[in-house]
């Protein structure tokens, strides 16, 4: 059974550094930390388990870190930003799992954009190595993409020529729809396995800024400052809140939470899902909302 509740203490693949008001989300995938057996998560490639941690981190940054205004997505691995979804994992997965995986990862990237757009937590991708397939798609979910200019770091969507599938985690849509890359440039880009680097990547709007390696960290910093200046998020150090769902019990035919109960009728393929309104006094002012957040996780 796949579980979705996790906590930074349990992360295997991501670390979060806080340097108020900036957080840096660093990817260094544990090769042997796959959710299922049969594949190694080499070159910062990911499976659902890596993305469950990312989803958790994005949620916690929003709820537990009001002081954070900009988030840098980067890699802690030398020469590799992220190689995208693990191919062996995909090849071994059932069709249903591939579809679910694809949906979940898309929802996580949408939630990253949601945070940039509505929460004043702007995501910036600092690509310090190769960003292939889902790796570049992760960067595409950010509002600003910086690429280190070192002659080898690049961006690519090699799915069509290499794997006979699509960059399906928003890649095709975001390059033309969000970044407004010209469709003929996009067409070429999506058919070259080696991807595009350097000036051409910048000229074609695949990235926002090309930065020499020697100035990379400094430039990322500069970009952060700019973004936080326009952030609508109040700089605050209010108490942390519990972000996880309070799962009480999972049984064969039933799951019980505080406010949600789920019962299965397996014979007929039915789920009875009931939401229970809270009883008693409700928090109606900011102070009591915070207090409730600390105890029940809202």
């Amino acid at each position: 059974m796949i579980e979705f509740n996790t906590h930074p203490d349990k992360y295997q693949h991501w670390t979060i550094d806080y340097d108020c008001p900036i957080a840096t989300l660093k990817l260094k995938v544990n090769e042997d930390g796959g959710l299922h057996s049969g594949y190694k998560l080499k070159l910062n490639s990911y499976d659902l388990g890596v993305d469950i941690e990312l989803h958790d981190a994005v949620q916690r940054l929003r709820f537990e870190h009001p002081e954070i205004k900009a988030i840098v997505l980067t890699s802690a691995m030398d020469k590799v930003f992220c190689a995208g979804a693990n191919i062996k994992m995909l090849a071994l997965s059932t069709h249903a799992h591939k579809v679910n995986f694809c949906k979940f990862t898309n929802e996580t990237r949408n939630s990253i954009e949601d945070a940039s757009r509505f929460s004043g937590q702007t995501y910036i991708a600092a690509i310090n190595g190769t960003a292939a397939g889902g790796g570049y798609e992760l960067a595409l979910a950010s509002e600003y993409i910086m690429l280190v200019d070192d002659g080898s770091s690049n961006v690519s969507l090699p799915e069509v020529p290499l794997l006979a599938v699509l960059p399906g985690t928003g890649g095709l849509t975001r390059i033309v729809d969000k970044r407004k890359v010209r469709r003929d440039h996009a067409d070429y880009f999506c058919t070259v396995t080696e991807g595009i680097r350097g000036k051409r990547a910048e000229n074609w709007k695949l990235i926002d800024e090309l930065v020499p390696r020697s100035k990379f960290e400094q430039k990322v910093e500069a970009q952060d400052r700019l973004k936080q200046a326009i952030s609508t998020r109040a700089l605050t150090q209010e108490a942390m809140l519990k972000s996880e769902a309070k799962l009480l019990e999972i049984e064969e035919n039933r799951i019980t939470y505080d406010h949600v109960s789920v019962e299965y009728e397996r014979q007929s393929g039915i789920v009875n899902l009931t939401i229970h309104a809270p009883d008693g006094d409700l928090p109606t002012d900011l102070e009591s909302i915070h207090a409730a957040g600390q105890t029940t996780g809202l």
Partner: peptide, 24 residues
Amino acid sequence: RELDDAIMHLSFNELELGTWVLRT
């Protein structure tokens, strides 16, 4: 959050439960 967790759990782990009946 609880509804979210339930949706994810049912989507990934309970593929043959095809109809969700929602109540409050």
